[in-house]
Nucleic acid binder design. Structure first.
Lengths: 221, 221
DNA sequence: GTGTAAATGCTAACTAGTTTTCAATTGAGA
DNA sequence: TCTCAATTGAAAACTAGTTAGCATTTACAC
């Protein structure tokens, strides 16, 4: 009945060859975080990256005034935290457990030896990072040129991934609003519009996607 | 009197060791593009990347309806086009000569052999790509949380780089608007506001930055 | 069951942006 | 020097978003 939200395949780990991946994950330490718990914070030194085994993680920035800029919601199979490591800077985003989640912590030494062991791994890293840049550019383009209902449709489509009609997305309206970058009021209006059209159904802490095709349709205009 | 606009150090080439860089550039072919000429287009196969010797290049997406989403303006010393190559996909952005410019075209084989010759190069590539992602995230955060005057100030600061007061930025108001993602009218108002405050002076196809400190000040609120 | 915090629904007043239109100015080339 | 296209300035009407506030509903812990 419930599926973890997941944006892009932000996981180079999932793209690794089966044996390499198993080996890497086996070297990591399992950590469990409770909902709302901080996993990493801006400014932290980057000494590890994380693989999400189960649950969801919010990636964004919490401003001092309480404003939240959500960049993405990650789910099982996704990876995060490798960016600061690659860039050799401190954490530039906060990561917070969106639900209770099980992560696997992989230390910098493990990553380093993985990189050195196989040139293909580096190639894969470069590739997934290039994809991340593309995602970011797409996000910028969308936010500039699409209306809120369109961006909502787009985001919902991403969140339900390859599941068809009937997918239940476990996310609050506030989180959706922070993800899209609008107020909760605007998001509520857009959601209610989609519901009137029969494309989705609003729940408490969830959105039921009922007509994927209709959402796609909305984007072509 | 005129300096090419340049955003971030989107140039891993400039970060290469002197000798390696010279060698790489020597292997490339010099190409001159006239103002407005298309350098690369969405969908093109990525068989090369470019180093900007002089002039400026606009990186963005031209929509069918004529709308332009500018992601960045690049200047001398910057590099572009390596992303699609790394990601192994076709071009996802258009590149257009902002002024008459001299570029050096570096083929995929050159890049490939550069990567294979030295692990440090790959490391550098990863690092600059991580920085690109950061830039994109910062852009998203700015567009969500800052007002137009603030984003304008931020953009002007980036465009004048490390030049102090008195820097002349050669860019039209339309380009600035496309870069920030607002209409020309809004941009004009913001510019006029900054001019009233004495921070900048409007020109024809240019903006004169007169008080860098004042612009920085605007961002802290 | 009951109390409580979280999440949602809704309204109203407001504001920052947009689109449209037209005139004035500038610079570059014949 | 004259012409023309590009750029800028400015006004008006409009629209999509915001903030603020409060009532209602839901789920969960006790």
């Amino acid at each position: 009945m419930s599926r973890p939200p997941s944006l892009t395949g932000t996981g180079f780990v999932s793209a690794l060859p089966e044996t390499v991946r198993r080996d890497l994950l086996a070297r990591g330490q399992v950590r469990v975080f409770q909902k709302g718990q901080i996993i990493q914070q801006r400014g932290d030194r980057a000494q590890e990256f994380w693989y999400i085994e189960s649950g969801s993680v919010q990636i964004g920035r919490y401003a001092i005034d309480g404003r939240l800029t959500l960049f993405t919601l990650l789910g099982a199979g996704d990876t995060f935290g490798e960016l600061a490591f690659m860039g050799e800077f401190t954490r530039t985003v906060d990561a917070i457990a969106g639900t209770r989640c099980t992560l696997i912590r992989i230390g910098d030494r493990e990553l380093q030896s993985l990189i050195e062991s196989d040139a293909a791994v580096t190639r894969l890293l470069l590739k997934t990072m290039a994809l991340t840049v593309q995602d970011a550019l797409n996000l910028i383009e969308s936010s500039r040129n699409l209306s809120v209902p369109q961006r909502l449709a787009q985001t919902l489509l991403q969140l339900c991934g390859n599941q068809g009609d009937g997918a239940e997305i476990l996310v609050t309206q506030q989180d959706l609003a922070d993800l899209i970058g609008v107020s909760r009021v605007s998001l509520g209006k857009a959601l209610s519009g989609l519901e009137s059209a029969g494309s989705v159904e609003r729940g408490y802490g969830s959105v039921l996607v009922q007509d994927v095709a209709a959402l796609r349709d909305l984007l072509d205009r």
